[in-house]
Structures are given as C-alpha cells and as structure tokens.
Design a protein around this nucleic acid. Sequence first.
DNA 1: TATATATACCTATAATCGATAGGTATAGAT
DNA 2: ATCTATACCTATCGATTATAGGTATATATA
Lengths: 112, 112
Amino acid sequence: MPPTPSTFLNGIPELLVLRLLRDREMYGYELVQAIREASADQLTFAEGVIYPLLHTLERDGALSTRRQTINGRSRVYYSITPTGNERLDALSAHWRALTGAIANILKAPHHA
Amino acid sequence: MPPTPSTFLNGIPELLVLRLLRDREMYGYELVQAIREASADQLTFAEGVIYPLLHTLERDGALSTRRQTINGRSRVYYSITPTGNERLDALSAHWRALTGAIANILKAPHHA
DNA sequence: TATATATACCTATAATCGATAGGTATAGAT
DNA sequence: ATCTATACCTATCGATTATAGGTATATATA
C-alpha cells in the first residue's frame, strides 16, 4: 500500500503559513494558492486545512486579522504578530535540526 | 501553546526503520536505540511506535522476520525485502522532493 | 536474598492533524 | 443562463505518533 497523502507533512502547513506571512499580509484563499505556486505544485493544502489553521493561529495570538471588502467579496487579511514570529523561528530551528539529523542517517553508509 | 511532540515527524519512523534495515537485519528493541543513537538523541521513537510499525511493514511484505533466542531472551530479527527496498526508494525520493521545496520557500526572500 | 535495571517483546487508548467533502455567496466569463 | 473563479466556512474521516500500560528473563546492586 502506498504512503498516505499526508506522509511527511505534519506541521508543514503551519510552517509555510507563518513563513509566507512574515513577508506580507495575505488572506486565506491567497495563501492556499501561494503555497501551491511557491512549491511548484509540490505542496497543495486545501482550504479545509488552511482555514482552520489560520483560526487556531489567530486564537493563539500568532496572527492578527483585518477584514476588507474588495469587489463585493469579503477578505480576511492575516498578519504575523511578534508571537507568531517567535513561533516561526522556533519551528524553523526545529525543522532544520530534524532534517539535518535525518539527512545524516539517510546518506550514512554505516551506523556505528 | 508549544508545537506538539510529533511536529514534522509523520512518516519518519517508517523512513528510518527501512533505511537502517537496508544495511543489516535488526530486532525491534535494537532499532529503538539505533534511531536514538544515529540521531544523537534528536529522534526518539518509543517501542509503542516501532513495534506496531514493524508489524505493519511485515504484513505489507516490506520486511521479513527471523526468530532467535539469545541468552534466554527471544528476539525477532527483521530484514528488508525487495518490496521494502522499493518502498524505501519511493519514500526517500518523496522526502528529498518535499524538503527541497520547503527549503526553497524558507530561504527565499520573496515569493513572486 | 531481594531489588532494581536492562533487555525484549507486546497492545490499547488518546490526541493531533491533514484529507476530503461538503456548504454559502458574489463576480465574471461563456 | 450556466459555469468557473473567488472567498469564506465547518464537519467528519483516517492515519499516525504519544503515552501508558503489560509480560518475562538476565544481570547488577544493595
């Protein structure tokens, strides 16, 4: 049986959302596409993943929101907060440590 | 709230077990410690994670087993099968593609 | 001798989180 | 008039790691 669709993806939506919002504020629908485009279609998280995540991050104080109506459509813009930046730094460091350790194991010819 | 203990770890136990067994056969208890040691304590998966995983991989034909009693203690040695090697190759390729895409996004100054 | 630790196996349950499949509503294109 | 794109939302499923148990033998220690 094949690997499940979410293999290796635990925590990735949060990492990417925080990373993208570090550059500029974005709204949910925009983030869904930005992740897909920034990864050349290698990573596609649907709205059912991103929206609940944004709500949780806002509830945790990592993001703040601003509502705006454009062309009759309502948008919710998300901005990263200082708390969110700290979280991004922590997640990034954790990510680098883990991927570094795993890369070592994958490429090592032997494991003393 | 802090990241959960399993952040970024989905699929990693399977990847590492297959990778370690590619070098030589090992038994479950040995694998638990080998993963911890090979990662310099950065990755620690308890027996409650590794044993059920080994059973699943064996059931899927990715691993084969050999029972042996040593010093009055019973061991179950696991060896990787051709199916398991194919699975390892697929997982490794998937892992490299994902981590590559994520590394790009993390380090990019802007996302056109 | 008795006890604690290490070895070696196992399972059951909880908690998290991505995947999927819905649903509402407006704008614009066919 | 219909379909697609935009833009938001929630509910439920499934897979997987985390945790906490449980059994049993060998060995080291008090």
